[in-house]
Nucleic acid binder design. Structure first.
Lengths: 304, 304
DNA sequence: ATCCTGGATAGTATATTCCTATTCAATGTA
DNA sequence: TACATTGAATAGGAATATACTATCCAGGAT
């Protein structure tokens, strides 16, 4: 248990720098006895003599004091660094941002967001991890993530979220599918066909809920937690799929062409949002990224 | 002006290490509210949130807190290093000893003293500087030296000295001098001959004082602040000299042989002593060197 | 001798830190 | 659903540390 204080060190260094207790006190805007006292205590607690008191002409360092003077200056610098680093986490847009992201949203949005943001704020490093909803929420709650990009589904009260964009679900078909030329497609039209389910919470429940709401039972022939696996299977005409996340390209990894069609049913849209721990105080960096995402999404997905 | 304390940092780190305020308190032998309070203040003063309070299961770090945890541990280690370094200046025989030494005494005693002492205490480094009496005293007073080896002449009250050995003055003659075969020599026998004076304070005054006490006036033909210069001149038969410091060899630098003869007058002996600043508190290293010199001198020059 | 400079000390008010006791929110369990 | 348990936060009060003003004291300067 350390028994001396940074304050004592500050006063000691100030006095050593100026060779005078009174001058140090003046500089520090405290009274002369305060400095005198602090130094006396420090000498006592460290068990060494730091100064030789030269009556009427200030103080001069003992050899031991001279060595300690250097070390104390170092330590104070170190302490200020820590303070700055803590403080700048809150006052400047620098430092590290720990970000979580729902798996399917990751490759679609994060490359652009991260690249643009760090272009505006080069002093920022972003640590990104993809995870499923539950892990994202846990990550927020236990402090693994500062922020998380996820769907506004089943969020507990502990996390607070701001919507960024809304996305309507759509039907994904192989190019050769009989309905690939249709305008929009009703769930009833297709419910009997083999369905490839994107099986990752909370999406799974959301998709199945859409069928349920229409009084239908999907014919799940395959399920995978990987979006690209689902697209690949649809490309191979294993079945159709129902998705929200919409990659720009229409090719699967193995080069087959896909077609998307809107649902004719008026369905509940999915909301992508930025979440953070409700009770935690956001850093300025967090706010900055939050705002940045807000504008980026409104520019690119302004009307849902 | 730093507004957080090492104590706060200690409590914070302890709590972060254990993921629990209560456990930290237990470990630190303080009450739980003390730790809680310290952390709350630290968060306030640094302006960041360090912990997420997980009700009924301790606390977990925010990403910012995690970064600060590392830095705080570093800083505490640094602070302990400083404490150790200060403390060990007083509790272990390590560190640096700043030593002053009267010019003529240097080559005679210091090589052996320094070598032997650092053999016993390998962790010690000795910084040695030779100077004349006034500079030694100033050096002690203004903190340049921890200790000084010098003659017990004209010492102000500010420095405290312990005698190490007494040396009687002697006459130095060239080998070919008419009195080189004599048993002892009176100042009266030789006062008219040319005298080579070792001209360095306080020796100068001491030597001249010896003549004065005998009611004699020396015939100073040459004076030099260098002992070897004086010996060389005497070797060349420029004159005789009166000295206290007694090198072992009887050859000058240029290879001429010298002879020493005791004074027949009962004279005041010169005392070599170890001096330090009276009001300063000695470190253990200083004490150790002091004692070491005490025994070394009593072994080698036990009877004066 | 006398004044001036500059650190130490005395006495006191205020802030901080600590303690114990209690409260409060969340968890896990009958 | 109630109830004990866990673990942090808060309240209130005692002890400690830190700050201040006023004064003292030793050593240089005049």
């Amino acid at each position: 248990m350390l028994n001396y204080t940074l304050r004592q060190l500050e006063y000691f260094v100030a006095a050593a720098d100026r060779g005078s207790v009174a001058r140090a006190a003046e500089r520090l805007n405290v009274s002369q006895p305060s400095v005198s006292n602090a130094i006396a205590k420090l000498e006592d607690q460290l068990g060494v003599q730091l100064f030789i008191r030269q009556h009427a002409q200030g103080v001069s360092l003992t050899p031991t004091g001279r060595r300690l003077h250097m070390e104390a200056r170092d330590l104070l610098r170190h302490a200020e660094d820590l303070f700055d680093s803590a403080h700048s986490a809150n006052s400047a847009i620098t430092g590290e941002l720990s970000l979580g992201c729902f798996v399917t949203l990751g490759p679609l949005f994060m490359p652009a967001l991260v690249t643009l943001f760090t272009q505006h704020h080069p002093a920022v490093t972003i640590r990104l991890r993809e995870a499923i909803q539950d892990d994202l929420i846990n990550g927020l709650v236990n402090g693994e993530f500062d922020l998380a990009l996820l769907y506004d589904l089943n969020l507990p009260d502990a996390v607070e979220s701001k919507p960024l964009a809304r996305f309507a679900p759509y039907i994904l078909l192989p190019e050769a599918h009989r309905l690939s030329g249709a305008g929009d497609i009703s769930l009833t039209d297709i419910a009997d066909e083999p369905f490839v389910l994107l099986d990752v919470p909370p999406s799974r429940g959301y998709f199945l809920g859409l069928f349920e709401a229409a009084g239908l039972q999907p014919n799940v022939i395959f399920s995978s937690p990987s979006l690209e696996m689902v697209r690949g299977l649809v490309g191979q005409s294993v079945g159709y799929s129902l998705l929200v996340t919409r990659p720009r390209g229409d090719l699967t990894y193995d080069g087959l062409r896909l077609v998307t069609r809107p649902l004719s049913e008026a369905t509940q849209e999915s909301t992508v949002c930025m979440a953070r721990l409700a009770k935690s105080r956001p850093t300025r960096l967090m706010d900055a990224f939050d705002n940045f995402c807000q504008t980026w999404f409104s520019e690119h997905y302004g009307d849902g």
